[in-house]
Design a protein around this nucleic acid. Sequence first.
DNA 1: TGACCGACCTGTATC
DNA 2: TGATACAGGTCGGTC
Lengths: 199, 199
Amino acid sequence: MAMTTTMVAWESRRDQLQGGGGGGHGHGGERREHMFEKVVTPSDVGKLNRLVVPKHYAEKYFPLGAAARSSPAGTVLCFEDARRGGGETWRFRYSYWSSSQSYVITKGWSRFVRDKRLVAGDTVSFCRAGGRLFIDCRRRAAVPPTTSSLAPQAASINVQRSSAVDEKEAAAGCGGRCLRLFGVDLQLLAEPPALDLQL
Amino acid sequence: MAMTTTMVAWESRRDQLQGGGGGGHGHGGERREHMFEKVVTPSDVGKLNRLVVPKHYAEKYFPLGAAARSSPAGTVLCFEDARRGGGETWRFRYSYWSSSQSYVITKGWSRFVRDKRLVAGDTVSFCRAGGRLFIDCRRRAAVPPTTSSLAPQAASINVQRSSAVDEKEAAAGCGGRCLRLFGVDLQLLAEPPALDLQL
DNA sequence: TGACCGACCTGTATC
DNA sequence: TGATACAGGTCGGTC
């Protein structure tokens, strides 16, 4: 396997995980710089096992050299978990698919989706601090009151947890905390817009 | 799909098929030694163009040197057709895929599948005689009488040849000589368990 | 250009 | 239950 394991350079400074200062959630000794975020699509969290990185951000923040761009092997991106204290790292293959002219994160992504219980509509965000990269995610915002007011009626109908519906429906993006009914995602519980995904 | 890849490790008594002593169908001067066989899966005969060789047998009968094992090029295995009088040979690329930790026959395999009209559920078997390798195949065994007794009723129903049904059904393993109805494979004709695949 | 095929990947069943 | 085998996929190169 000829993967050009280009670690996007980070000097591992494990000692400052709790640095408190400027950055986001208290990690990353230096100031955490927000790069971009993406509301994930059903495909991003489905069986395709890949995250499409919007080209604009990809070329701005994760530029691939000509060699890596033409190689299917792409490169490897390492992100530190922005939340977990242990500084868990996520290794993703990152490459360019010429067929679809898109930048994608492939290998490693499905593990992240599973681990974070990521569902369509959730948001993943990417930050950096010095040479270090961080990844974070949060739940989608709660649905508007008008929609969620349907829930009482729905409660009397024989519905399924979305995790039990067939793949096509599940791919449509409803996670463990909502019901999908007549094509509409219903929140089971009122949730704050940003929910800590730690288990 | 949980098809149990039953590798039937039998001591080859080919003479019960042809009666003749010594070497099976009259080839291979020396005694034909059965190595192993595999009931092919839908993937083995589908678009993936590869046969997964169960690791146990691969390492026992087709060991790859360290060099060939690490190389994607693998090696080439030549098999003589165990049935055709002309001694047709089949050349297969044989290699190890480290990503899935499996041994596979790739190049040349799809030609064999096509030529032999191989379908899921059929069996391919590998023998050797001296330094020569032989490959053979046979149709899946006929379904039990209790099941095939459904055929009279089935005859009046609008059924399809399995070769025309969709991939999922075709994948279930019914070949050109049977019908698949209500999830049951029905033989169209009474067949001996071992059928010569020559056209 | 499209069909074929090589390389790589992952979920699931199994041990 | 963790590790492993492998069936069922993907994308991209090639011809």
